[in-house]
Design a binder for these strands. Structure first.
Lengths: 187, 187
DNA sequence: TCCTTTGCAATGCGACTGTATTGCAACGAC
DNA sequence: GTCGTTGCAATACAGTCGCATTGCAAAGGA
């Protein structure tokens, strides 16, 4: 085996460049050449690591997903052992919300991907499973295992995220809304 | 003035074709030629009515907005005079939610436009104003003029819409979540 | 009747797209 | 050493993009 290169790492580097392009110029600006330029590599190399553009998109989408999961895990970890349910739920929500500029960029990418996958139903199942899992987890933290409340909270968070990205709500407004909802759920 | 043609109507026809293309193949498939083909007209004609693609997009976006406003108005009208606040709010929410296939298509288009405008901040103010207005209106219907509750309800609705489009929630689930939230707000 | 304005079709242009192909340097196995 | 595999660059190609230009038919006003 000649010339050892960490395949996954290269792919991730390229995916990162893709996300930078998408966050700044929208997903429709994502092309092999743009991504290659952003990554500082040749277009041929991008082609070497992703046989098709769609493969690259799918991989990038997965990177976003994993990265978000990691963030959530870290946030939970940071709370220490046996955190109060409300604090835990709030940490989950604020972690997923696009509150700083970095996660705003991620959010824009995720949003772009969402309408991208709306036409390609292939990736829908994974998405669905993730949400169901999240609802179940949150429900376990709510008084009475409130599944409907958990689903509502998640939807509310998602909507807040959209309004944050769109600039309709400020961060303070969003957090106020979130806390009000937690007041209702943990009453 | 020769050959009188209803300019606005033609533009709306073209915008309709655009939305059909966008709903079915995504916004990145929207091109002058595709839209023209979908509308059953020549590409030259599309160019005749919209000097640039961006002008066409902007117009279509506006059509979506107006159409949604009309739908809301009709739903309110249908409730008759002096409807109970909760019924009115619920009608507003269910009208905006993508519950049937037609409004699902609209929702997909709106979602695509959202990430489209995320990069073009020009249209943001109009969006912001619409949301603020809606929050104010709903707050007036909630007990105590609850502004935060109204903002939360709107965000929840938006999130439900996304999950409906993504297939994560079924219609029944979404409606259950909505009604539970109304229970909390009108308690 | 001519003439100007308008509606619309057709074509061309340069830029850009995704992908296939080709070539070559670098390295490990033998 | 040599051989084959791999990493990567460069180029070619057919197609599509948005947009500009041109031409012409139709319809009032003069």
């Amino acid at each position: 085996m000649p010339r050892k290169v960490d395949h996954r790492e290269r792919r991730t580097q390229i995916a990162d460049a893709l996300m930078r392009v998408a966050a700044e110029h929208g997903l429709e600006a994502v092309s092999l050449r743009h991504v290659a330029a952003e990554a500082g590599v040749s277009a041929g190399m991008v082609q070497h690591y992703f046989r098709t553009k769609d493969e690259m998109m799918t991989f990038a989408l997965d990177v976003v997903r994993v990265r978000s999961e990691v963030r959530v895990g870290a946030a939970v970890q940071a709370l220490g052992p046996d955190p109060a349910p409300r604090r835990l739920v709030r940490a989950l929500m604020t972690t997923l919300l696009p509150l700083d500029e970095e996660s705003r960029a991620d959010g824009r990418v995720a949003l772009a991907f969402l309408s991208y996958t709306a036409v390609r139903p292939a990736t829908a199942p994974a998405l669905r499973e993730g949400t169901t899992q999240m609802v179940g987890f949150i429900a376990g933290l709510l008084p009475g295992g409130d599944e409907v409340g958990a689903a509502g909270l998640l939807a509310l968070m998602e909507g807040l995220g959209m309004y944050l990205l769109g600039g309709q709500y400020t961060e303070e407004q969003a957090l106020r809304v979130l806390d009000a909802q937690l007041d209702l759920l943990f009453r």
